[in-house]
Design a binder for these strands. Structure first.
Lengths: 218, 218
DNA sequence: GTTGACAGGTGTACGGCGTACACCTACCGT
DNA sequence: ACGGTAGGTGTACGCCGTACACCTGTCAAC
């Protein structure tokens, strides 16, 4: 049933996954689902667990940095396979055993790499959702081209207005796209951004570890 | 009306903010709201804009690092004043002018600090949601004490089970709480974690800027 | 071989949601 | 005096999660 839910979400998006719809997909009456999960929240928890189950186990032969990197990128692959997972993970407030298990295992990698429990704690916070293989998208998806695209003049006017109001964003978009600019903010290379930030953080972690950083408060 | 919506969300939480409930609060019929917003999504957008409006403007006298730090911490104060804002911001997919304006202004701070447009782009991605003053909570809120707390024995058993399954998390919790351990994961010092990660990132950014980093791809 | 527990499917119903659509009213510039 | 417009109204539809009472088949214990 969790598998069916995952497939349904893959197919129609997480918002369209309702108890009723899922039941229909399973050829069953909605209330039947409640024999397997207590409520919809628990269904979502289970679906997230399925996705997290796809994360490859840690490779014990790698040093901590490579191991964390590999693990997180594996998580990313899992999340990218299920476009709804990002939102689902963000919305979960409960920590299931699967979630805890993954976090524990990742923490273990840091510990074995010579991080104190203290520092491990803080670096995992610093990674934040990157643990799960994603970070927020700063800009929109390419704005779904619904209805007639604005005429050339309108587009011109819009672009001018945008340039005047948000010069720095424009500049960035130009730099990022090699000034073709077709559709401002038409999608960053998310994978690049993810690895950029990840490596930046791992580098910083290594520096702190090397200098024997310890939390100063209290 | 947006103000009323914000106050309502402050009072009862974002999930309890429905068009009907908000209308009731305003002494008006639900459909009346649709004269002011096109739909509920737009209402949420507007509410987020109100919160972002509370962020203090950039101080032009600070160097880039202090300026970004101050700005982001101001955003954090705004978000913490409205506990629902975090979730609301995460759920928004649309970029309102307010959102774009804030991002543009922050990008400007980097640019004036000597960052290339290219590097500015990537560091803003690296900050991710920290731009808005928050990062995901790794662990639960203290698990709302509903119903009878488990008996001492049960608690013992639970703790033992937990220790066996998640030794590293336990270790971290011990390190973080000074081993009193009343309720595992009983809340981290989120403010500390936030600033820890923020400073780590700002440090990394500075190193990249100083060495004239430029994106290598393409 | 009967029985009783239990896993799991069924049917009905309730209260809530967002919002489409047609309508009404008060005001204001002409 | 009048037409447009901003904003409030009332009704209705189709969705949602899920409480509650009920039914059915399987299987172990007696």
């Amino acid at each position: 049933m969790l598998r069916a839910a995952v497939e349904l979400a893959d197919a129609v998006g997480i918002d369209a996954v309702s108890m009723r719809r899922l039941a229909q997909e399973l050829g069953v009456v909605p209330m039947a689902l409640y024999k397997h999960v207590a409520n919809k929240d628990q269904l979502l928890d289970g679906m997230v667990d399925v996705v997290l189950g796809e994360i490859e186990p840690a490779d014990p032969d790698l040093d901590w940095q490579a191991a964390v990197r590999a693990r997180v990128l594996s998580a990313r692959r899992a999340v990218l396979r299920h476009p709804w997972a990002r939102q689902a993970i963000e919305s979960r407030t409960h920590r299931t055993p699967t979630v805890l298990g993954y976090m524990d295992s990742l923490a273990g990698t840091f510990r074995r790499g010579g991080f104190s429990a203290d520092l491990t704690h803080h670096v995992m916070h610093a990674l934040g959702n990157r643990i799960w293989g994603f970070s927020p998208e700063l800009f929109d998806e390419p704005p779904a081209p619904d209805a007639a695209p604005p005429s050339a003049e309108e587009q011109q006017a819009l672009a001018a207005e945008f340039a005047a109001r948000y010069p720095h964003i424009l500049e960035i978009a130009v730099a990022a796209t090699g000034d073709d600019l077709s559709g401002v903010g038409a999608g960053c290379d998310e994978q690049f951004e993810f690895e950029f930030a990840l490596d930046l953080l791992l580098d910083g972690f290594d520096r702190l570890r090397a200098q024997g950083w310890s939390s100063a408060r209290r």
